[in-house]
Computed example of a mutant assay.
Amino acid sequence: MCMSEDNVIVVKGLRKSFKKLTVLDGIDLCVKRGTVLALLGPNGAGKTTTIRILSTLLLPDGGQAQINGLDVVKDADKVHRLIGLTGQYAAVDEYLTGRENLHMIGRLYRLSYPDIKRRSQELLELFDLVEASARAVKTYSGGMRRRLDLAVSLIASPPVIFLDEPTTGLDPRSRLIMWDIIKQLVAAGTTILLTTQDMDEADRLADKIVVIDGGKIIAEGTSDELKQRVGSERLEITIAGTSSFEAATKVFDNDGDGIHSDGKRRTLSLATEGGVHHLKQVLSRLDEAGVEVENVSFHRPTLDDVFLTLTGHTTGQQPDGEAEKNPPQQEART
């Protein structure tokens, strides 16, 4: 499947370890031209390590990764001309103005001055930064810095862009602006590999989703395909504070893997296709156990449900010892 000429990014058996910690354990993935692939996973799952290897910032221990048929290790210089990278933190010079940041990176890409001037203006307009373009970046808000950071990665019009959690820390309005810009880039033919812990972001932007946990791919498909793995609906029950939450969970000890509990929220989540009939059964079992229910709700599966079902924890959690121990590095642009 990954041998198709339509696949711009191809990864086969990629492996990476830091001392005794295995971060990537032989992952395979491919991204079609002009699409968005979202790489989902908890902290330490290997998402950023994958991005760093693909963007030539980190050498793999094994396997192969190609961008447009070019090996990211053997052909690193050629790969640089094809990619743009926006990391988790804005990598712009805060003492330069927004326009000066764009001009500086354009010169590093060896673009002609007329091209730098034209492209900078296009990007400032696209990212709604024209009015702020003459101000030092240190005066920008967090959302403005993130938009400028993405603009800088686009100065040379790369056909492939890596976005490593691009909307982390943004307010809702700035996040929507970023999403709109990403959609415009894809509509123009750009190929994007996006890492995120925001399930809504993946749902809205991704043509395909790959779920990674513990350095391995545990599921992949479209958003709808992954949701179908959870079931048509989930029943969520909030246990009253006057009842024992432990007693409530024991009621469903023999019901298999479809049950998930959240002690902090005092909720039980159950896969269901029985509707009201199933609800009556569940409430009856809890009542027999002397457990009082505070609230009941039905909801259709979300990507959060998918991830919880597949891994047993949310995207923000990680099992002990699975932190991604990449040494801090300056993000490379060229």
Rank of each mutant, 00 (worst) to 15 (best):
T50N: 09
K16R: 09
T315Y: 01
L286Q: 04
K216L: 05
R81K: 14
F298R: 04
F127D: 07
F245L: 15
I217R: 13
L235F: 14
D28E: 14
D203V: 06
C2H: 14
T196W: 03
L283V: 12
D171T: 05
F18H: 07
V72I: 15
L108F: 13
D213M: 05
H313V: 12
I161D: 00
T167S: 13
G215W: 01
R266E: 08
L193E: 08
E201P: 07
E233G: 00
T139P: 12
I27A: 04
L102R: 01
K74L: 12
I239D: 09
A134K: 15
G263T: 03
D115F: 06
L40S: 06
N254G: 11
G46K: 07
D61Q: 12
N7T: 11
T97G: 04
V23N: 06
D71N: 08
L39G: 01
I217V: 14
E100P: 08
A65C: 02
Y113W: 09
D305L: 13
F307C: 07
K208P: 00
A289I: 09
A202Y: 04
R266P: 06
Q318T: 13
E5H: 13
E94P: 08
A248G: 04
P166A: 06
L310G: 00
R333V: 08
I218L: 12
R118K: 15
